[in-house]
């Protein structure tokens, strides 16, 4: 059973979700102003999935994800100033301004990065899990991915290998119903993605992929419980596939005309957003908590303001940065 989070922990999850939301809103503005370049994939809508999943991990565990990575990075505790600096391509950024929005990592926090190639990080997750197991460490990897990436070869090869080798990986599909503009049902033979686990289960001695739950990805508590349980299984036995049902409230990336869905559909999810829902739950559970939540809201805004200040005042990378770290010298 998952550790039951106390009030302080729950408020911290709320803080993280609000921080992510404010951070992403600000990124959108900075993109419009031309201060952020490249592709920008916002994590507005799925905050509860990222925060709940990361909360279920221990410090020594590992997180890896795709390019929609800002929320995961912030949930894992990457410095908000340095994440914003990376957005602005500054030398103080978490990846020195060389990775950009899609490539946020912090080795020390076991955040192994965001990755821009759909599915490209999934075999890396298997390898990180192999290293943990090989070295006899009691660690698990949570590998987040989009629904669209479950149709790519990397997904199948990685899940299969993790099943054959009993690797401690929680494969977590963030099913936000679309891969760019293609709805899940138009791209995936299995519409309930979690059923794909069955293809890699079970060997003669019962080993192989465990089919985990389809969890309400807009409910941070539910995600936390599901991933806590999955991580426990992964630590003891091997891989699990979990599907989180979520929704992105913004376009795929900036400038997405969103011809593939209706305004009404988006609005229907807006009212079910994970932050408002969690706030209501907290208000219900703890009498008089509103003032604390308001304070958290203000602090999040301030943290993002400060991060933008920090990023704007940071130096650009230099020629030396351009040419460094191609190889180990």
């Amino acid at each position: 059973m998952a550790r039951q989070p106390n009030k302080e922990t729950l408020l911290d999850w709320y803080r993280q979700m609000v921080l992510i939301r404010r951070f992403e809103e600000r990124c959108a503005e900075l993109y419009q102003q031309g201060l952020i370049g490249g592709f920008l994939h916002l994590y507005i809508g799925p905050e509860a999935t990222g925060v709940g999943a990361v909360a279920a991990l221990r410090e020594q565990d590992h997180v890896i994800t795709a390019y929609r990575d800002h929320g995961i990075a912030l949930a894992r505790g990457l410095d908000v100033n340095r994440v914003m600096a990376e957005m602005l391509g500054k030398r103080t950024g978490v990846s020195g301004g060389k990775g950009g929005s899609m490539h946020l990592a912090d080795r020390d926090l076991h955040m192994w990065g965001g990755y821009g190639i759909v599915g490209g990080h999934l075999p890396l997750a298997a390898g990180i899990a192999l290293a943990a197991k090989y070295q006899g460490k009691d660690e698990v990897v949570v590998a987040l991915m989009g629904d669209g990436s479950t149709n790519i070869g990397y997904f199948h090869e990685s899940l299969n290998l993790s099943a054959v080798w009993d690797l401690p990986v929680v494969w977590l599909v963030e099913n936000n119903q679309y891969g760019m503009g293609t709805a899940v049902g138009r791209a995936s033979g299995a519409v309930e993605i979690v059923n794909k686990a069955n293809a890699y289960c079970c060997g003669a001695d019962g080993h192989g992929m465990l089919q985990g739950p389809r969890v309400d990805g807009m409910d941070v508590m539910a995600v936390y419980d599901a991933i806590s349980e999955a991580a426990e299984h992964a630590r003891k036995y091997g891989p699990v596939l979990v599907e989180s049902l979520t929704y992105r409230l913004e376009g795929h990336s900036m400038g997405d005309p969103q011809r593939y869905r209706t305004k009404e559909e988006v609005e229907s999810f807006q009212t079910k957003g994970p932050i408002g829902r969690f706030r209501a739950l907290l208000s219900d559970k703890y009498k008089g908590v509103e003032s604390a939540l308001d304070r958290i809201d203000e602090e999040a805004l301030k943290a993002v303001d400060d991060a933008v200040e920090f990023a704007k005042n940071s130096p650009d990378p230099t020629y030396d940065d351009l040419v460094s770290h191609v190889y180990v010298d």
């Binding site: 890396l124 390898g127 290293a131 990397y154």
Partner: peptide, 19 residues
Amino acid sequence: PISEMVIAGAAVGAAMAGL
């Protein structure tokens, strides 16, 4: 398994993680 993508990719991950 006969899985070149994951042979190469998992080797990258394992190398990143200290093997």
